[in-house]
Write a protein that binds this DNA or RNA. Sequence first.
DNA 1: GTGCCTCGAGTTCA
DNA 2: CTCGAGGCAC
Length: 707
Amino acid sequence: MSTEVAVEKMDGAQAAQELAGLADVLARANAAYHRDDAPEISDAEYDRLKRRNAAIEERFPELKRDDSPSDMVGAPVSETFTKVKHAVAMLSLGNAFNDEDVAEFESRVAKYLGIKQGIAFTAEPKIDGLSLSLRYEQGVLVQAATRGDGETGENVTNNARMIDDIPQTLTGAPDVLEVRGEVYMSHANLAALNAAQLAKAAKPFANPRNAAAGSLRQLDARITKARPLHFFAYAWGELSEPLATTQMGAIERLAALGFSTNPLTGRFQGAKALVTHYRKIEEQRATLGYDIDGVVYKVDDLELQRRLGVRSTTPRWAVAHKFPAEIAHTWVEGIDIQVGRTGALSPVARLTPVTVGGVVVSNATLHNEDYIQGRDSKGGMIREGRDIRVGDWVEVYRAGDVIPKVRDVDVSKRKADSKPYVFPAVCPECGSPALREEGDSVARCTGGLICPAQAVEKLKHFVGRSAFDIDGLGKKQIEMFFHDKTLPIREPADIFTLAQRDAQQLTKLKNRDGWGELSAANLFAAIEAKRKIPLNRLIFALGIRHVGDSSGALLAGHYGSWRALVSTLDAAKDHAGEAWEDLLSIDGVGAVMAAALVDTFHAPDTRAAIDRLVAELDVQDAIANDTSGSPVTGKIVVFTGTLELMTRAEAKGRAETLGAKVSGSVSKKTDIVIAGPGAGSKAKKAEALGVKILTEVEWLALIGEAR
DNA sequence: GTGCCTCGAGTTCA
DNA sequence: CTCGAGGCAC
């Protein structure tokens, strides 16, 4: 952010100069946004610059340029897409990489359901595009949303209306119908689009998926219209009535309603038949005319799908059998060591840039010492027994088509004087010894906060999105302030004394290069706004090993206040006693996490830094759930057998929010046992002890969730 | 003791 | 996204 002169105080020369600069910046940002689908600046910044441009033009109308950003067509108009929360989450799929994984998938399903082999599955090509959820109410398309993170996506309704394959109205559809599928661009259409791009001297799209994503996420729907996109329907979200009783039946119903469905979708018995179909699709891959990256298998019977249920992000009843990843070959130019927040030393290969699957890759993680030496604990996707050296010619691929990895080394191209890479015994950043503990897969710097790399990474974590999330204080600024001589941020507490310290300086932040009155004031205000911090965020922000986002929430929920948490950790000093047991009693907290917490609070330097920080803050207690009205408050309940209407995690979560304590074993303290089919010894024991036993349905009725 | 499942930590590129 | 590993159910 440059030092900005208030518009009212500008002279003509300044105005003309700034207008030129703005025209340039905004034009480039616009091009990046539209052509590459890769914004260079944030939308907020874009809007701000555009408003400033307009303000200057208003005061100096005669200076308005011919290429004024105000007149740009198709510029992202204020705001981005609105967010849409999916009524039913859009899940991702588990992966299978070989025939064996597919066989395992089948036996997992069979075992879970308690039935023999011979389950029917559907198989269909996995289109390489982007997922879209279309909501129809009374047969009318009312909303289209991208997948986003699965929970919340972006509203792209206007753009989706431009796609011919997507019907605007349906006849004979359920009142509420969410159709899910994939938007993609055919090879032919991509070629035509790229020819047009080149004619305009614009950058061509690297692959159909980028082109489809870029075309759909246009704020100007007219651009989407000009880009020929297609849509295959293959799934659904919220429904007011079932589409069919089988996956295949549902697909046929969607086709009957007017959606395109993939012609290579079929129904098969057992893993062997699935793999045969996979090979058939693989043979046709090059001639399909659109990109696919595998084949998706789904349990055909929808009743079985429901029984199998979902894990946190993937269903148990489906899997994606991926085609082998695209590979490329390149040189290892060097191996660098990065030091993470927990002190972990991770080696990174610096590669001669090479294109893998449409993306230029120049770095690849090497994980740890074992990986470099050709020892991989799991085997899996890695060559055996071949070490990686600087100067080696290697095979790289992108795991999950995203993360670059080194898979193999061509030893024959190795020079005679090549030497094995020696993993450092000391931290390259601070010189402290690097130790690898028994059973740990990585070596860690022992320098703690003495190590500048660890200190700065911890600070970056502290201001991260799930932690303090301070506007205008990101990784770059942290890096800058960490090394700053006059106004340093060396530990979290320093952030909250920044404004005060700045006021005492002769050269204030606002007078520095790259800063202005406004930007400095904004930063201080953003920091001030986060003094008030929810307990769970504070716990997470401390960056204690093994304590992440969800554990932070867990601890906050259990202890309620900072004071209660600290007194427990203080009392649990010896890893024993009542306080220690209390920590372990929390579901999800084990000895490892408890020890990490207690030890962090008893390390004198760390504790002092934490106390300095908390003295600056206004910590918000966790809001305890009001469970007084719940019929099961304080009751100890046990779930046993197969739950058919909800997952175990869901059942547990619901019970806990209603104030019940979920236990794993039945004792005379148990109040209720909820027994599903297949319940064995626990139900018997409950009976013997005279504990109340409910079916799943009765339980749901009790907590007022009858379905 | 084994086998899920979830979480934490580290990672790339646009 | 992937891996390892902690935590828990069986």
